[in-house]
Every structure is written in C-alpha cells, then in structure tokens.
Design a protein around this nucleic acid. Sequence first.
RNA 1: CGCGGCGUGGAGCAGUGGUAGCUCGCCAGGCUCAUAACCUGGAGGUCGCAGGUUCAAAUCCUGCCGCCGCAA
Length: 331
Amino acid sequence: MRLVMMGTGTFAEPTFEALLASPHQVVGLVTQPDRPAGQERGSTRQTGRGMKTIAQEHHIPVYQPESINTPEGVARLKEWAPDLLVVAAYGQILSNDVLSVPRHGGINVHASLLPKYRGAAPIAWAIYHGETRTGVTIIKMSVHLDAGDMLAQEAIDIGPEETAGELEARLAPLGARLVVRVIDQIAAGTVQGVKQDQALATRAPKLTKEHGLIDWTRTAAQVCNHVRAMQPWPTAYTFLHRAGQPPLRVLITRAVPFPVRHDPSAAPGTIFTDSRRPGALLVAAGLVSPEERTVVEVTELQPAGKRRMAAAEFLRGHPPREGDHFGPEKS
RNA sequence: CGCGGCGUGGAGCAGUGGUAGCUCGCCAGGCUCAUAACCUGGAGGUCGCAGGUUCAAAUCCUGCCGCCGCAA
C-alpha cells in the first residue's frame, strides 16, 4: 500500500521507521513546520533524530504546512495518491476532506487504552491520575477526536516511579509494532474494528506550563504522580518562600512519597528534614485523614537560574529555616 | 540584535568599595555504648577572562567566554 506518514516528535519516530522497514511504500511525510529553533545549548535535549531527518535519509518527500486542512493541503495529499494515512502525534486535527483522500482513510496511533484519555497528552494524564496500567490503541480516524473504532490495543504496566518521558519511550515502539500489524490487516481486508464505549471516555487535554504548578494540599502520592507526569515537559514547579526574600521559582524534577506519619497541623508545603533520612528534603503534603498528613521527599530539583541538582546539594546552600515553605508564587 | 538569572576553595550558597565567609565534604587528633553526633586543629580560592574607574574592586563601568531559565 501507498502510505503517508503524519507525525511529529519522538513518539512518531518508531512508527515512521517501522513503516519504512515494512513492505509498504511510504510516499510522503507530513510534519509540523520548523519552528525557530532557539540557540544550541550544549544540553542534550534532542532525544530523537527528527522526523524530517529520517525522511531525508530515505529520500521521502516532506510537507510541512501550517495547516493541512486547506484546499492546498488536500491537493498536496492527492498528488501523493495514498491508500492510507498513518498518524502519530501529528498535532493537528484532520478534516473530513483530508481523511477522505486515501481510500482507506486514516489510522491513528494513540498512547492510551481508549476510550480513556482521549486527547493530546494521554501519557501525562494517565500518570497524573495514578494509573498503573496504560497502553497503545490503534484507531480508525473519524472527525471526532480519538473517537474512532479500535483496530488494535495492547497494554503495559506503568512503573511506580516512571516519568511521562520514560513511559513514552516504551510506548512508542509498541505502537510501531501494532500499527504495522493493522496495516497488514487492512491490506488483506481482514481488519476488524471495535466501537469505543462512549460512557467510559475521559479527556487528556494538551498540557501548558501552568499545569506544572504543584498543589501541596494534595496527598504525597498525588503530588509525586504530578511530578512524574510533568517530566520532561512542562516540568513540575513551585516557589520557595523564605523570610525576607523574594519567592524563588524551583523546578521539581524528581520526588517520591516518604512514608512517615506527620503532624497534621503542619501546613502543606512546609519544608523539613528528618534524622532518619540524612540529606533528604521533605515537604509536608495534604491530609489523607484527620490524623495523618503525608510527606513528599524531593530528590532532585532545579532552582531558577541554576542547573539541576540533587536535594542534598540544594540543602547545603539553602539550609531550611523555621517557616520556609513551598507554595504558589503568592502566599 | 527576543526577555531574564548566574559564574566566589571539591559541592551548594552568602558577601554590592576597605584585611574572603557559611553549610557540607576532605585531612589530623579528641570524645562517645551509640548518633546525618559533638569538640579541637588543618589543607584548599589570582572571587570566569580581559581592560577601565579608584588611594582601595568579588563588589562600579566596558567587552568577551561559559552555564541556566523563559519565550519560540
């Protein structure tokens, strides 16, 4: 079959490479336009090789429209005369006109166990809500977001300390395997779809920076899920409040629940240490019962303008004083 | 020329014109049944680099290099 790949980012790469390795013919790549890429900064942010680079290595034509849902976009797709669109983390909703171009329409690789977590950030929201199991679903695309019939699904466990970035890295190859299987079935005419149960559908909206703000009144487990879910982007953050000093923005990059029973009268966000845990930065979190307040151990963080550091290092320069606490910018 | 923060002994920080300091680590010794323990002594910095202002600069000014955050 003649395939057009539509996708952006590291999640799409394994799928793209699997298509290229398959007997099917990849006739084009549609990906997001190049955004003005900031300065190179030594740090190795680029985990993937880039969809565009992969396409060029295989001499696949690339199309990067601001919107694919224009007459021009549809025309370009028609020129490629695809039998099927394969979509993974493309970032644009496809119009009916676009989906009507190929005779088999489009299929989407979605990183959740649909119908749960429909939307742009299924991995992060699954972790945020404390799920212990998630997976990949291949769906027939329809005009309604992530609501089409399910063509294949496979589940995996989520590690107790696994971040969204780590989980994505495991889900991407899983999706690539599934999608190739589904394409073979479509080609053979043996594919079978299963309707989604609308009643079980939940939303996983696109993340923004504001989603990173930590609410210390939630329980320790919830705060830690939040931290994992926001990693590596947009990253959980809070503000360090000290007497006589302006709030210091602090990114929290790793945190685990610390199983101690803690004084319920201590306010959420209060910073303290414990002799049983030398070098540990502990933060009071929300109540789980009137008698028990849970505690978060922050193990890695990044103060504004500084590099990422272990909690023990941070404590040397910021020894906790009475009244120091984490919280929103104003408190 | 997108905006901003920062570069001070091995680590993290304070110090904004006048003898370079704190916490941790390290070395030596002491104390203790014991403790992220405590006590004593010690090593380790040309305060990113180069100019300038000044009697005097980590501290003010200019340029450069490097690191980081935001915005994309």
